[in-house]
Simulated assay, not measured.
Amino acid sequence: MVSEFMLQQTPVVRVLPVWEQWMSRWPRPQDLAAEPLSEALKAWGRLGYPRRAQRLHAAAIEITTEYNGEVPRTEEALRALPGVGDYTASAIACFAFGQPTVVVDTNIRRVHARLFGGMALPEPTPRASEFARARQVQPEAKDDANLWNVSVMELGALVCTARSPKCDACPVFDQCAWIAAGRPAPHYTPKGQAWQGTDRQVRGAIMAILREHEHPVTQISFLADLSLQEHTSYVALEGLQAELAQRERALSGLLKDGLAVLEDGHICLPS
């Protein structure tokens, strides 16, 4: 469950060291639930999208209070937890508990699009038809269904990659509809998610400052001339050259999302 939260929009190479430290410190949901949210946000570090840490902490509390510290095994129960959507619920039920759920992530969507649809890439956003196809092609036997999900996901991650697929090493090369169609080019150009200069980048720099300070930070320190700040953690925020309006907007967003708290003109991580 922890890995599924961390791996949302974040590559394995960045997640692995944080995951190892996290699981060493909090091996059970009740261990995490016993700590304040601020500790979870600090441990999350620079993985990005810190609301994932907030929701994982909330899920740990609910698992502790409602499920006696045991992660629920069914998709329905998992989906009711904070931060758990359809994919995360099906993935946990399948990979942790061996349930024959239909798992559809980015890698699986791409393999299905090529193998069965003859397309270079799946549609930009998931469609109901993709989930219907995933249910149709998945084996009915429980063990086979779980093995299928793992295999197709790994095939997409290691062989049938987005940019440089290793078709010569593919075990289903002869059955691939995309190969049979002559490897047509993608019908759209994927657009990466912007980062440089965005409010999200500024939010990340502000969160880094809050994580590194033991005591609350004055609100004005984020809004005044950053070059006057003596603490080295302000260097990254100053380097972004974010205008005052953007810093105000980013800070306001963190407060609204409950990732920071304002008290008496000072800001800190939530307790």
Rank of each mutant, 00 (worst) to 15 (best):
S3M: 07
F5P: 12
M6L: 07
L7W: 01
Q9Y: 09
Q9C: 02
T10N: 00
L16K: 11
V18D: 02
Q21S: 13
W22Y: 11
M23Y: 08
S24F: 08
S24M: 12
W26R: 08
E35T: 10
E35Q: 13
L41Q: 05
K42R: 15
K42I: 13
A43D: 11
R46C: 10
P50W: 11
A53Q: 02
A53D: 04
Q54I: 03
R55V: 00
A58T: 11
A58I: 04
T64L: 05
E66K: 14
E75T: 15
P82T: 02
P82H: 00
P82A: 01
G83M: 03
V84N: 03
A89M: 07
S90C: 05
S90G: 02
C94N: 05
F95N: 00
F97C: 05
G98F: 00
P100N: 01
V103S: 03
V104M: 03
D105W: 00
R109W: 07
V111M: 02
V111Y: 01
V111L: 01
A113Q: 11
R114H: 04
G118C: 03
G118A: 06
A120Q: 10
L121C: 09
P122L: 06
R127H: 09
E130H: 06
E130P: 03
A145L: 05
V152E: 03
L155H: 09
L155N: 06
G156R: 05
L158A: 12
C160K: 03
C160M: 02
T161Q: 13
A162S: 14
R163A: 11
S164A: 11
C167V: 08
A177E: 15
A177H: 12
I179V: 14
I179Y: 13
A181T: 12
P186N: 06
Y188M: 05
T189A: 08
T189K: 12
P190I: 03
P190H: 08
G192V: 07
A194S: 12
Q196K: 14
V202R: 09
I206H: 08
A208D: 14
L226T: 11
L226C: 09
S227P: 00
Q229I: 07
H231N: 14
Y234F: 15
E238N: 15
Q246A: 13
E248L: 10
R249P: 09
L251A: 08
L255R: 07
L255S: 09
K256T: 06
D257H: 10
A260P: 00
E263I: 09
G265N: 09
H266A: 15
C268D: 12
P270C: 04
